[in-house]
């Protein structure tokens, strides 16, 4: 088997199982015929097969009457995953933040192409993209694995940076006086709120709200990705990208909730969107000379959003299930 054939075969995994069984050999033959003159595998061929496979998976899981809506949501999730990847690429950390937040032994290895990249952000991007794509592709176990890995990364980061919650004001301002002070104060605030809010919020919501395994697992993934993402966006990317994250993550949650796996608690995201969009606007238009008010608004909004998400998810799931109480 040539290297090209091996890569093309791997790309066929994007197709749903039954389609792959029926047509996989034919598609592979055509790919090999079409690229016979090439020494290296053709990226366009691989990309087209992966996209077609994803499309078929989405179509296979879409049923009326919400079919078109859910198919659109699935594509939104896919687009957001791509967007997250772009943000990850742009998620370049300022040198001073990296130096204050990481052990010295880790820092040198993180300089890629002259850019200092946060490993935590990269890990979050990979895990959230993985969770999202797996979720839409109905690979539920893979989605849960990715989401748990994302949370593990966040927990690890907190453990790795024990001083983040209580650094003396001089510790950071010594390195880069001026601009760092604002960031470091924010990091501290969100660092502690993340540590306290994320572990209790996610599992209780995943277990309590949905007795069914499909519903529970999907909502668990959504809430884990959401909480990890919000915490990380606030902590690491304070600035324009954080504002993007505040807009992006609720949309992401909405897209996932509407995804083909199970549409029922889709309404759960509406309050979050309602909360987050004005919040993002406030944040973007906040007066930079008085950051304290902006920070508080953002934090309050995020917490409110998470609570609204949890409450609405629970109630809408109950209502849609005919008021059956959760069995825990």
């Amino acid at each position: 088997m040539t290297p090209s054939e091996r890569i093309y075969r791997a790309a066929l995994a994007a197709y749903p199982r039954d389609y792959r069984a029926a047509r996989g050999d034919e598609v592979l033959g055509t790919m090999l015929d079409a690229t016979e003159a090439r020494r290296l595998p053709d990226v366009r061929e691989v990309g087209s097969v992966v996209a077609d496979g994803y499309r078929r998976r989405v179509l296979a899981s879409v049923t009326p009457p919400l079919g078109a809506l859910r198919a659109g949501a699935a594509w939104a999730a896919f687009a957001l995953a791509v967007l997250t990847a772009a943000v990850a690429v742009l998620g370049v950390m300022r040198e001073d933040h990296l130096a204050t937040s990481l052990p010295a032994s880790l820092a040198p290895s993180l300089h890629v192409l002259g850019l200092a990249i946060s490993p935590w952000f990269a890990a979050f991007a990979v895990t959230s993209i993985g969770a999202l794509v797996a979720l839409v592709a109905s690979e539920r176990r893979a989605a849960i694995a990715f989401a748990l890995a994302g949370v593990a990364v966040q927990v690890w980061e907190v453990a790795f940076r024990p001083a983040a919650g209580f650094p003396g004001p001089t510790a950071t301002s010594q390195r880069t006086p001026g601009r760092t002070s604002r960031r470091s104060r924010v990091s501290r605030g969100t660092g502690s709120s993340r540590a306290s809010s994320s572990p209790p919020a996610s599992p209780s919501r995943g277990r309590g709200a949905c007795p069914g395994s499909a519903c529970g697992s999907r909502r668990l993934v959504v809430s884990l990705v959401l909480v990890a993402g919000l915490a990380l966006a606030m902590d690491h990317l304070y600035g324009a990208v954080a504002a993007l994250g505040i807009v992006l993550l609720p949309l992401l949650a909405a897209a996932v909730a509407l995804s083909p796996l199970d549409p029922r608690p889709a309404l759960a995201c509406v309050p979050l969107l309602v909360t987050a969009l004005p919040l993002a606007w406030t944040y973007v238009h906040a007066d930079p000379t008085t950051p304290a008010a902006g920070d508080l608004t953002v934090l309050a909004g995020i917490l409110l959003g998470i609570v609204a998400f949890a409450v609405a998810g629970t109630t809408s799931a109950h209502r849609l299930r005919g008021g059956t109480p959760p069995q825990s």
Binding site: G29, T30, S48
Partner: peptide, 27 residues
Amino acid sequence: LHGYGIIKRATELSDGRVRITAGTLYG
């Protein structure tokens, strides 16, 4: 025509402008 035959013929007919990939073709 078979799959690759269609791809080749489409490229010829469009003077090399249309290059259909396998994923596009089977879609």
